[in-house]
């Protein structure tokens, strides 16, 4: 039983990181109907911005919540900027091109980020500085919980609540929902669709950047190709929950995190990376709209 609860805690901590990345995928898919393959690499970029910021400001000399928040803020700002540049230079010129062309471009951007990352950051793995040093494990009965897991979970949850507030309560959020509902109609209603799309990219990229720093905190080995697998898994989480659906992305990510943790804990650790894709094929077979998605018919 104790082992079971332990796996649940680990799974939720992993799932909350997937959720942060999945949110960006699902938001961008909502407004552009585009799978942004470069999204996972923005998460890698976030981890490296966090790394270099803390090196530059010597943040690991006085670890604590404030250092963590500085690194987090830097990574989120940097990634938002990168997201804006990518959208502006690579995706906006293709707004009216066939969708497959935009998809190919996003694959190109993803490769460019990965391998120029290797060129600039070096291809060897780096050790992420310990921005927060827990004084010890928290013991609840027989359970041992790493405080870092709690911090990762709480910060992700906080960011998700902020995002939900922006989307549901502000004018910008309403504009985003309008654009994702109907692009052209939103433009006719006077919504600056290009600006809204840029903003959506920036928001999603900032979340990916935050996820990068949080991963650096929890699993402190970062390298330029680290974004590929989590990126794909986050996308799969978004599809599991129903792509384009904010709550769905979080639910899907938590489910995937738990499923992976249980697979590793109880059954076959070597097949960990194959599990997500297996789940994806299953969900596409039986409920292609995802767990929380609604069916949309294509109109001509």
């Amino acid at each position: 039983m104790v082992e079971f609860v332990q796996h649940v805690i680990n799974g939720l901590s992993l799932g909350s990181i997937y959720a942060l990345i999945a949110l960006g995928y699902t938001m961008v898919f909502g407004v552009l109907q585009l799978i942004n393959f470069a999204h996972g690499d923005l998460y890698m970029l976030g981890a490296f911005i966090g790394f270099y910021t803390s090196q530059w400001l010597h943040l690991d000399d006085n670890p604590g919540i404030s250092s963590l928040l500085i690194a987090l803020g830097a990574a989120m700002t940097g990634c938002a900027l990168a997201g804006y540049i990518i959208e502006r230079c690579a995706y906006r010129p293709l707004r009216h091109a066939p969708r497959i062309n935009v998809l190919i471009t996003s694959v190109g951007v993803s490769l460019l980020l990965q391998f120029s990352g290797q060129l600039f950051f070096g291809s060897d793995a780096k050790f992420f500085p310990q921005l927060y040093r827990p004084s010890g494990m928290i013991h609840v009965g027989e359970l041992t919980i790493n405080p870092i897991q709690i911090i990762v979970f709480v910060i992700s949850l906080g960011l998700m609540i902020i995002l939900q507030t922006i989307i549901m309560k502000t004018r910008t959020g309403r504009a985003m929902r309008a654009v994702s509902f109907n692009h052209e109609l939103a433009a006719l209603m006077g919504i600056p669709t290009d600006r809204v799309i840029s903003l959506t990219f920036m928001l999603g990229s900032a979340l990916a950047g935050a996820a990068g720093v949080l991963v650096g905190l929890a699993y402190p080995k970062i390298e330029p190709l680290m974004g590929v697998m989590p990126g794909l898994k986050a996308f799969i989480s978004a599809v599991l929950g129903g792509i384009g659906n904010i709550t769905g992305a979080v639910v899907g990510a938590m489910l995937l995190g738990l499923a992976e943790e249980f697979l590793v804990g109880y059954w076959a650790p070597t097949y960990k990376d194959a599990l997500a894709f297996g789940l994806l094929i299953l969900i596409l077979l039986f409920k292609p709209t995802g767990l929380l998605g609604t069916k949309a018919t294509e109109k001509v």
Binding site: L94, V102, T105, G108, L111, L112, F115
Partner: peptide, 12 residues
């Protein structure tokens, strides 16, 4: 890197 730049610039 060259492949990536080729892909993006070809598409654009």
């Amino acid at each position: 890197i060259i492949y990536a730049i080729m892909l993006i610039s070809l598409m654009l």
